[in-house]
Computed example of a mutant assay.
Amino acid sequence: MAEDLCESYSTAAAKGFLASHSSLGGFAASGGLRDPNSFEALADRLREIAVKCNMPSPPGTTAKAMFDRDAAIVLGECSILMSGEALRDDVWAYLATVLLPDVVRWRFGKAPAERFSGGVRNTFQRLWMRAWALDLGEGNLERWTLLRGLSEDAHVAIFERPSVGGNAILAKACAMEWLRVSQEIGRSAMEEVMRRAIKVLRLKHQVIDISVLSEEEVRENVREAFALAVSDLTATK
């Protein structure tokens, strides 16, 4: 479907295609009560965000960042994704390929297949992973501070590495330290610092299973990695 249709998808074409292929909206019963409209309602909210970010006009850097931030929050607060369903790649492939191919193409241009298929580079799954890992808790007035505060490069550095982004405690610790260090040395220097710090953490992960450490021990490991990265960067200048 992505190969055949993503080059010319508009919102009207996306909705028309789904309407003329009703079988795409069906699935086998697996227990519980079925709500046939819940996922479509989620898709409508995500498309509204894209429109507010000037879809269908080609998005600039600011529009992309706004979409990623606001869409991630919607996905993070979506009750139907607070279950094992969100861990299934085919759920995200369905959302991207069947319900929102126009948004995928708007966000990523020609949109390679990986933006439609499930996985860490899926247009929406990557955003849900950010929200899941960086969520500071429902009811917290600063619930999405980490998600909003990181640059796109920082998000990519964390979440396209499963050993880091797949551990919510480690991901939060990296985000908190990124924000702290960026206030000291400036955001412009953080891409190289983050790259070096993540490399140190991944190497350490080969020797120490970070997933079994306490939360404070994880934070200490992250602080040390960032301190080493800053020190190395300073030494090379």
Rank of each mutant, 00 (worst) to 15 (best):
M1T: 07
A2T: 06
A2E: 14
E3K: 15
E3Y: 15
D4P: 03
C6M: 05
C6Y: 10
S10W: 09
T11S: 09
A12I: 00
A14W: 06
A14P: 04
G16L: 03
L18N: 00
A19H: 05
A19K: 04
H21E: 09
L24H: 13
G25W: 07
G26Y: 11
F27D: 09
S30K: 00
G31C: 03
G31K: 01
L33I: 10
R34C: 06
R34D: 11
S38P: 12
F39P: 03
A41S: 09
L42C: 07
D44H: 04
R45S: 14
V51R: 14
C53T: 02
C53G: 04
N54F: 09
N54G: 11
N54E: 13
P56A: 03
S57C: 06
P58G: 05
P58K: 02
P59Q: 05
G60V: 04
G60Y: 09
T62K: 00
R69Y: 04
D70Q: 10
A72S: 15
E77M: 02
E77L: 01
S79V: 14
I80M: 15
I80H: 15
S83E: 08
S83T: 13
G84M: 09
W92F: 11
W92C: 10
A96E: 05
T97S: 14
T97R: 14
T97F: 12
L99M: 12
W106Q: 05
F108Y: 10
A111S: 15
P112V: 01
P112I: 01
P112D: 08
P112E: 06
A113T: 13
F116E: 10
S117Y: 03
G118Q: 01
V120S: 02
N122W: 01
T123A: 07
T123N: 03
L127P: 10
R130C: 12
L134K: 04
L134V: 03
L134D: 08
G137Q: 10
E138H: 07
G139M: 05
E142L: 06
W144M: 01
T145W: 00
T145P: 00
T145C: 02
T145F: 00
L147A: 13
G149H: 03
G149N: 01
D153R: 04
H155W: 15
V156T: 07
A157K: 06
A157H: 13
S163M: 02
V164P: 13
G165N: 01
N167P: 05
A168P: 07
A168C: 04
I169M: 02
L170Q: 04
A171N: 13
A173R: 03
C174D: 04
A175D: 04
A175I: 01
M176Q: 15
E177Y: 00
E177T: 11
L179Y: 01
L179Q: 08
R180H: 06
V181S: 01
S182V: 00
S182W: 02
E184R: 07
I185E: 12
R187I: 00
S188I: 00
S188H: 00
A189L: 03
M190G: 03
M194H: 10
R196L: 11
L201K: 12
R202W: 10
K204V: 07
K204T: 07
V207Y: 15
I208F: 07
L213S: 05
E217I: 00
E217W: 00
V218Y: 11
R219D: 10
E220N: 08
N221Y: 11
N221M: 06
F226D: 10
F226W: 09
V230C: 15
D232W: 07
K237Y: 09
